[in-house]
Amino acid sequence: MIEYLEDVIGSYNSYIDKIESGSLLIAELLREDRTAEAFHIITDFSEGITWLMQAAELLQKNNVHLELEIMKMNEFLEEINGGLEIQDFVLVADLFEYEIAPFFERCTTIEVPQN
């Protein structure tokens, strides 16, 4: 089981490290009116956040300490969906640049437990 947890931690850390730059890319694409590209990455982002929340739950159940505000991530998803529904791409771009990117910049990765 520890090997499985190490794999999940590795994937978790890898994704956490990429979210900030991905968020800034989404903001840039939206501002450049490249919405089709942005929507594709936003879909990947949403799926990744859902996976992060599931991984966090699994890790916490296995006594792996992590600091991830799941409620805040749910709020981000709701705000993104709301902005997309009303086609306010400036709002969504600002959300990714000024809220989501800094949030994930502050997230710490998880130390892999040593055997």
Rank of each mutant, 00 (worst) to 15 (best):
I2C: 11
E3F: 05
E3Y: 05
L5E: 07
E6R: 15
E6A: 08
D7Q: 12
I9W: 06
G10A: 14
Y12F: 13
K18M: 10
K18I: 07
I19L: 08
I19D: 01
S23Y: 03
L25P: 03
L25E: 09
A27Y: 01
A27V: 00
E28H: 12
L30W: 05
E32S: 13
E32F: 11
D33Q: 08
R34T: 00
E37Y: 11
E37W: 09
A38E: 03
F39L: 15
I41F: 05
I42R: 04
T43E: 15
T43H: 12
D44V: 15
D44E: 14
S46G: 12
G48Q: 02
G48N: 01
G48I: 03
L52I: 03
L52Q: 00
M53L: 14
M53Q: 13
A56E: 01
A56Y: 00
L58A: 09
L59A: 05
L59N: 02
N62C: 06
N63W: 02
V64D: 05
H65F: 13
E67F: 04
E67G: 06
L68D: 02
M73Q: 01
M73F: 01
N74K: 13
F76M: 04
E79D: 06
E79Y: 04
I80P: 00
I80G: 01
N81Q: 14
G83K: 03
L84I: 11
E85H: 12
E85A: 10
Q87M: 14
V90E: 15
V92M: 10
A93M: 06
A93N: 08
L95K: 02
L95R: 02
F96K: 02
F96P: 01
A101K: 04
F103E: 07
R106M: 14
T108I: 04
T109A: 04
I110Y: 02
V112N: 00
P113E: 06
Q114C: 10
